[in-house]
Structure formats: structure tokens, C-alpha cells
Amino acid sequence: MSAGEPPRGAQAAPGQRLIDIADSVDAEDIPLFLARQTYRRRRLMDAARLLPVVGLCLVLFPLLWIGQGEGPQTRGGVIYLFGIWALLIAVAGLVAARLSAPLPPGTGDERDDVV
């Protein structure tokens, strides 16, 4: 068999197709439960990942209402855009400060793939 085969438990049974094989997640390697502190840090990383997505939605939001209503809209646009901009900066500052804060001694926490 070819060399690219997954090492353990992956011997193809007769009649097995590619669609029958689940994506192999290194489940043994990943702890199921995390300490409360570590769990909080994971959610912080999630927040950091989500921030640009939320930001994008907010930036694209004017597409839904500009040109729909009556009257001049630049004024509203300016206030809205600078408002969400400031909000994004504030949240990013909060997340960044907490992400770059030094870890308490003795809590090595290198991986960020653990949920």
C-alpha cells in the first residue's frame, strides 16, 4: 500500500470507500476537558478570530440601507461608520491586551488547536 496512508487503525476494509472514512482528528491527542482558566483563554482566541467577521458584517451593513430611505444620508453614514470603527478599535484593544498579557507562572499553554 502507498506510503501516504494514515498509520493506525486505517487499514482499508474490503469494500470501503473514501466517503466512508471520517476526517481523521487526532482525538487521542486533544484533551476533552480543560481547566477553567485555559477554557477562558480559548474563548478569548475565538473572540479574536470572530472580530474581523463581525467587523466585515458591520462594514457591509450600509449596503442594505443606503439609497433606500429619503433625504441626505452622508451625515448618518459618517456617524454610523465612525461609530462602528471606534467600537471595533475598543474591542480589539481589549482582546489584544488580554491576549498579550503574560501568563501566570507555571501555566505553559502553547497549543491553540485545543478547543
Binding site: R49, L56, T74
Partner: peptide, 21 residues
């Protein structure tokens, strides 16, 4: 073109706030 100029700054803002990614 009105507020369109802001896109030039909003794009980088999104990238920077998504620095973790």
C-alpha cells in the same frame, strides 16, 4: 464619490483587528 474613500481604511482595519488569524 462621498464616503467611498473610507473603504481604503476599513479594509486594513478589518485585517488588523483580525491579526490573530
Amino acid at each position: 464619490s462621498g464616503l467611498e474613500y473610507l473603504t481604503i481604511y476599513l479594509g486594513p482595519t478589518l485585517v488588523l483587528t483580525g491579526w490573530w488569524l
